[in-house]
Each structure stands twice: as structure tokens, then as C-alpha cells.
Simulated assay, not measured.
Amino acid sequence: MKKYHILIPSLASILLSAALYSCNPKAKESNTEQVQVDSASFNATIDGKTVKLYTLKNSTGVTASITNYGGRIVSLLVPDKNNALTDIVLGYAKIGSYQKKGEPFFGALIGRYGNRIAKGKFTLDGKAYQLQLNDGQNSLHGGDDGFFSKVWDAKQVDQKTLQLTYSSKDGEAGYPGKLDVAVTYTLLDDNALKIEYSAKTDKTTIVNLTNHAYFNLNGAGSPTILDHELSIAADSFTPVDSTLIPTGKLQAVAGGVFDFTKPTVIGKNINADDQQLKLGKGYDHNFVLNTHDSSKPVAVVKSKATGIGLEVYTTEPGLQFYSGNFLTGKDKDGKAGKSYPYRSAFCLETQHFPDAPNHTNFGSTVLKPGMTYQTTTTYKFLK
């Protein structure tokens, strides 16, 4: 049991402290009530390797907490319109909850292949491969043996930078080749979280890495994201079949329920009588981005309630917009004891297209020996 020493200050010192706090608008940024993660709850040994929680902090007080179990973003504290820090990503309060089978990939690094591959099958250099099936008849986010369940080697370079590395064995989850992966999280002073991915292989393979952060700009645990305003720089998306595998076609968004080319409230059309929305139980689709210029945002989200905005920048050609349709609120082990109900978060996963190895018109995800896979995604937060 911890022992606490209680100091009883004088009335004068209390009044002085209160006056200083009220005159300092940045004082709210250090409000410890907003910090909902106990780092000790993430100290563990998994698969014989040490797991812990790493904290990044920039010069403005923005804080990102990341565990090397699955490379997961556990907490992200950003200022709202009143300069109060708000945790805007969903996550659990302790490491054990992330190990539950069927947990929704909260904040995880995803690989080897983000999103779905039909029936877990693909052919490479004339050889057929069978992946683990963990989404009905399909493989999702690398299968049961995906990167989200691995203990990454971690090195905190400085207060703003965390480097994670993982070596995936040849044949892991059914994928060919030994794949050496490095991911660097950097918290920039303009309140942006930059994620840089790189990978090399000793045998021809396929790679599609992403991050599965669940955002709610009203604050993690708030009941809905349907009041958020979203825009996506995409004139088309990839429609899916009943198992959420792309059909191979590109469908224009203009004038339809998938048109986010102008800022649109997420809840405006989400319950419309549209076959694609019914198949996804809402939005769970890959958008074909108009630009690969990482200096321009490919998506912008805003919350009127908190004033917090999010801009997404990426070098990737696709963006999976997921509206939290499979969240149930049954979990009671969220941060600060919160649950995460239906459609209480959204994901914007930057990526190559789902099932691309089985669609020649979707662009290649092949990585060969001697090549380096490199991609960068940045989430920038505004108020």
C-alpha cells in the first residue's frame, strides 16, 4: 500500500495558488483529472517480453500514451476550445483488456495487411497462399496472429519520439518472407502525431500497414460521433459485397450518401436506405483519395461540442472510414470505467486498398527483397 504525506498549507498560500491558477489559462492543461491512464496497469511480461506504457509530450502540453503491446495508442490528450485537455481516443484502462479475443483493435498497429483479404487467399509469383481466417470467411488485419497482438521492441528517443520495431517470421499468419518492420511515432509541436512506417523483406511478400485509432472528438466515452462534421478528398469509393470484400469496382460518390467532398455531418445519411450502408451497418468503406500529396489534408473532422478538429495527411492512396458500427458498449473496462457504445467512435485508416492482391486495378502491395516499404500518416489536431 502506498503511503501519502499530507501537507496542510496556510490560508494565504491557498488563496495565492487559486489566484495564480485563475489568471493562467494554461493551468488547465495540467489538470490531472483528464489523465485517465495509470501507466502501472500496463507493466507486464507477454510472450517473454517486457510491456510498458510510453508517454510522449510536446511543448504545448499535448500528450500521447502508447504501449509496445501492438504499438497501440492508448490515450491522446489534446486541448479543446477552452484549452482543457481532452482524451480523444478510445482504449482500455489496463493491458489485460487488450488481450481479449475479439477486442476491436483499439489504437493498434495493423499488419501485415490492413483490412480484408477475400477468403484469406492470394497468389504471388505463381504460388498460392492461405492466410489465417478471423473475419468469417475472410482474413482481417493480418489474422489472429497480426501485429496488433505482438510485443514490439521499443526505444523512446526523446520526449516526443518513440521507435518501435518488430521482426515477423517467414510464414507468420500465412505470409511469406521474414519482414522487418519499424514504426516511429513523433508528437510534433504543431499538435500533430506523425506515424512513419518502413519494412524490408527477404522474400517477395505483400504489405499494407496502418493504425486503427478510434477517435471521438467530444471525448473518449462520449455516446456518439454522429454529430461530427467530416470531409474526405475522394470522388469515389470501393463498394463491397455481403462479406465487406470490395467488388473490384470504383463507385462515384457525387450526390450520394458517400459524398463527403464537402463538410457533412456523419449522422446525416448514415441510416439512409442504401445497400452499401446496409452491408457495412453504416460506413465501413475504403475511399479512393484524390491526392497523394502529403502536404494537403485528405480528411478533416470537427466537433462543435469541443471545438476540436482533426486533419489527416498521408502518402497512401486509400482511406477506410469506419463509423464504429460494431461497438456495443458491453465492455466496462474502458479508461476511467467508461464503456464505448454503438457508433461512439470513428476510424480513418490510411491504407492501400482492401483485397488489392486479388484486384489488378487496385495497385500493387507487393514488396520484394532489396525494396523498402515506406509510408507516412499524420493526424493533426486543431481547436
Rank of each mutant, 00 (worst) to 15 (best):
72 R>K: 11
86 T>I: 13
270 I>P: 00
285 H>S: 02
130 Q>E: 14
73 I>N: 09
293 D>S: 09
195 I>M: 12
112 R>C: 04
359 H>C: 06
184 T>I: 15
190 D>A: 09
195 I>L: 13
207 V>P: 01
216 N>E: 13
16 L>E: 15
298 V>L: 11
373 Y>V: 03
134 N>A: 07
287 F>N: 06
113 Y>T: 12
312 V>F: 01
343 R>C: 03
247 T>P: 00
330 K>D: 14
284 D>E: 08
338 K>L: 14
378 T>M: 12
258 F>S: 01
154 A>E: 06
329 G>H: 10
274 D>G: 02
230 L>M: 06
113 Y>S: 03
40 A>P: 01
80 D>S: 03
243 T>H: 07
298 V>R: 08
167 S>Y: 11
367 L>I: 11
350 T>K: 02
189 D>T: 14
296 K>W: 06
366 V>C: 03
44 A>S: 15
333 D>L: 15
121 K>A: 12
285 H>M: 03
283 Y>L: 03
140 L>V: 06
288 V>E: 09
50 T>W: 04
322 Y>V: 10
331 D>L: 04
267 G>K: 07
340 Y>M: 08
250 L>M: 12
281 K>Y: 07
108 A>N: 05
295 S>C: 07
267 G>L: 09
350 T>W: 00
143 G>P: 10
77 L>R: 05
273 D>N: 14
224 T>W: 05
230 L>W: 00
39 S>M: 13
74 V>W: 12
176 P>A: 15
231 S>G: 01
76 L>D: 08
257 V>L: 07
206 I>V: 14
160 K>R: 09
369 P>C: 01
274 D>K: 04
46 I>Q: 03
78 V>C: 11
370 G>I: 01
352 H>S: 13
228 H>K: 03
299 A>P: 00
283 Y>F: 03
2 K>V: 14
114 G>M: 09
365 T>D: 05
89 V>L: 05
293 D>R: 02
100 K>Y: 05
41 S>L: 14
33 E>P: 02
176 P>V: 11
279 L>T: 01
297 P>R: 11
232 I>E: 00
138 N>L: 04
191 N>P: 04
310 L>Y: 02
55 T>I: 11
54 Y>E: 10
81 K>R: 07
271 N>D: 14
206 I>A: 01
345 A>Q: 09
50 T>A: 12
221 G>R: 01
125 D>F: 08
95 I>Q: 12
146 G>R: 11
249 K>D: 06
65 S>Q: 15
14 I>K: 10
318 G>N: 04
138 N>R: 00
165 T>R: 06
79 P>S: 11
22 S>H: 15
178 K>Y: 05
346 F>Y: 13
311 E>A: 08
199 A>I: 08
55 T>M: 11
10 S>I: 05
301 V>T: 04
70 G>T: 02
105 F>K: 08
194 K>R: 15
351 Q>R: 01
263 P>E: 04
62 V>A: 09
78 V>N: 07
18 A>Y: 09
166 Y>K: 07
157 V>D: 12
306 T>R: 00
29 E>T: 13
169 K>V: 12
80 D>N: 13
154 A>Y: 00
299 A>L: 05
91 G>R: 12
160 K>I: 01
137 Q>L: 04
64 A>M: 07
34 Q>D: 11
23 C>N: 12
